[in-house]
Amino acid sequence: MSQDHEQFAGDVLLGLAHDGRLVVDADEAEERIAELRRTLAYGYALLADPDYTGPEDRLRDILDELPKYVEAFQQATKSFTPR
């Protein structure tokens, strides 16, 4: 796949969830979503910290990607059917 059409992990997860290939129990999804939201909050706090000296562009890329993970886990629970 060329770099022009590179899919990021969030896009891949969303595609899998949309196709019903990523299926997660609601409780498990809630835990993952909570962790992702904590990570997002921490990342935005880092960006707001005037003393942060890390790779700001890379952090912004990650923070742009994480909401897709949240959406994928939300969609994945809709397809879950307990056995």
Results as ranks from 00 to 15, higher is better:
D51I: 04
E56K: 14
L46W: 08
E31R: 09
R37Q: 14
T53F: 05
A48G: 04
R58Q: 12
L47N: 08
L59M: 10
A9I: 02
D19A: 15
Y44G: 03
A76G: 06
E30D: 15
E65N: 11
D57G: 08
A45Y: 03
R32N: 09
D61T: 05
E35A: 12
E65Q: 13
Q3T: 08
E28A: 11
Y69R: 03
D19G: 10
T77G: 12
E65A: 05
V12N: 03
L40F: 00
I33T: 05
R32K: 14
K68F: 03
A48S: 11
R38L: 09
Y69P: 05
G54Y: 04
S2N: 06
L36Q: 08
G43K: 11
E30K: 13
E65H: 06
D51M: 11
A34C: 06
A34T: 07
T53D: 14
H5K: 13
E6K: 10
L40W: 00
G54N: 07
K68H: 13
G54E: 07
E56G: 07
A76N: 00
T81M: 09
V23N: 07
I62S: 09
E56S: 09
G43C: 13
D27M: 05
T39V: 06
G15W: 02
S79R: 14
Q74E: 15
Q7M: 15
A34M: 03
L22R: 00
E35M: 10
A9H: 01
Y44H: 15
M1N: 06
V23F: 06
E65K: 01
Y44W: 14
V70F: 00
G10R: 00
L40N: 00
L40E: 01
L46Y: 05
S79D: 12
H5Q: 12
E28Y: 07
L13Y: 00
A45F: 02
E30Q: 14
G10T: 01
E30F: 06
F8W: 06
Q7V: 05
G20C: 03
H18W: 07
L14H: 05
H18V: 09
M1W: 04
H18P: 02
F73T: 02
Y52H: 13
D49M: 10
A34Y: 01
T39G: 13
A26K: 12
R60N: 09
S2A: 03
L63P: 08
R83V: 13
P55K: 15
A34I: 02
A41Y: 07
A76R: 01
E35D: 12
Y69E: 03
P67L: 03
R58V: 09
G54Q: 10
S2K: 01
E30I: 05
G10N: 00
Y42T: 14
T77M: 13
V70A: 00
Q75S: 06
R38P: 02
D19N: 14
D64V: 13
Y44V: 03
D25M: 06
E28P: 01
E35T: 07
F73Y: 15
P50T: 10
A72L: 13
H18A: 15
R21T: 08
A9T: 01
E65Y: 01
T77F: 07
I62R: 15
G43Y: 12
E31K: 04
T39K: 08
R21V: 05
R58L: 13
G43E: 12
H18N: 11
D64E: 15
D49C: 07
A76W: 01
G15C: 02
M1H: 07
E6Y: 09
F73R: 02
P82T: 06
D51L: 11
H5D: 12
D57R: 15
R32H: 12
A26P: 15
T53K: 09
D4Y: 14
